[in-house]
Design a protein around this nucleic acid. Sequence first.
DNA 1: GCTTATTACGTGTATATACACGTATTTGTT
DNA 2: AACAAATACGTGTATATACACGTAATAAGC
Lengths: 151, 151
Amino acid sequence: MKLEEAIQSNKFRNDVHKASLNILYTAWWLKTVLSRELKEYGLTHEQYNVMRILKGKHPEQMCVRDIASRMIEKNSNVPRIIDRLVTKKLVKSATSEVDRRETVISLTPSGLSLLDNSTSSINQAMDAQVSIGQQEAQVLNQLLEKVRAKE
Amino acid sequence: MKLEEAIQSNKFRNDVHKASLNILYTAWWLKTVLSRELKEYGLTHEQYNVMRILKGKHPEQMCVRDIASRMIEKNSNVPRIIDRLVTKKLVKSATSEVDRRETVISLTPSGLSLLDNSTSSINQAMDAQVSIGQQEAQVLNQLLEKVRAKE
DNA sequence: GCTTATTACGTGTATATACACGTATTTGTT
DNA sequence: AACAAATACGTGTATATACACGTAATAAGC
């Protein structure tokens, strides 16, 4: 669906304004596509994101702050997301022995297994639904980096 | 900041995967930029969005459902966002006389005034921070539409 | 070594998304 | 007209973001 139909408006100040709304709408669309798959596994998008980050260091542990700094949405409240993963026994939490301020987190075997299965679903969904080619994706990446160039 | 730095990872399956994360991260970045401006006016991004939609029909009223269908994030709980705007006397709410199931909403004078001021800020912030040209924005728009082509 | 600053978390509040469900009202069918 | 179906809201719950603040532990300065 075109943006104009999706938000029932074609009143944009200019193409940059339209592109900004398009980015926001596409992100919402993408989250919806991915969340639909994750729901089968009882995971939210954010819980999945935390687990993916943990897998990057697996089988090593990571402290909460390291996880937070890798999140896509930087204001995520990582301690609370971890709480829910601990309840489901998908990750394990312990006080660091090196620095007792730190809480170190690691994937449990069942967390790792759930992550692998859900990642397959996510990847399939992405390949099936995100309908651009690799070369177009490269151009898109360059443009998005440029959008944020002034940060 | 490049995506790799922002999320401290360069493990992408391919460019389409990277582009998906890039869209999500850029949307978060953009919301942050805009919310910083809106905070001066005591508005959230979503409250602003509702007011912008209302302005499209001003001085006519709109029913809740019409507003909801124009939201960027389609699962927004519009009645509750409106509650907060009513509390701040930025919009007025009344039961429709034509169809008593409908609640019709309209901007108050102070709502309209706040909207105009905040829109100036938003537009300035967007022009200052979103650093692509109009022609690049056109290409970006085409690519984003293509990403969602299978919806 | 003692004091101060910093760091890493955890928690509380306001607002939001996502979704299910109940209720009042209107529309459609017969 | 009476009943069934659909519609438009409002509300409740779980989880999330955004942000402020408190506390325990460590680091830094003297």
